[in-house]
């Protein structure tokens, strides 16, 4: 198993491009997907959930880290002081 993981790690550049190709495929698949009755406006837009995933992830990362650095971050022995 270590050999398989090592083999894949050695080809990280190829994996990266395969990943980008996969991203394109998911959007293309969304064009073909059979849509159910929309629960809200996002269900009607092609590729909406791609943007939601990317922006949601970036927003969550920046907002949470921002609040952490501005307010929540303390030393490990904060309560022992």
């Amino acid at each position: 198993m270590v050999k398989i993981i090592g083999f894949l790690r050695d080809r990280s550049g190829l994996l990266k491009w395969l990943f980008f190709l996969w991203l394109v495929c998911t959007v293309v698949f969304d064009v073909m997907a059979l849509r159910h009755e929309p629960h809200f406006f996002g269900d009607t837009i092609i590729g909406f959930w791609s943007g939601f995933g990317l922006l949601g992830c970036l927003a969550m990362g920046f907002i949470c880290k921002g609040i952490y650095h501005l307010w929540l971050m303390q030393d490990e022995d904060y309560y022992d002081k």
Partner: peptide, 19 residues
Amino acid sequence: TSYHLSETLQILSFTGLGF
């Protein structure tokens, strides 16, 4: 369903891109 699969794959894949 194809839409649920599409929705999930998009969300997870693009979260991966975000990371």
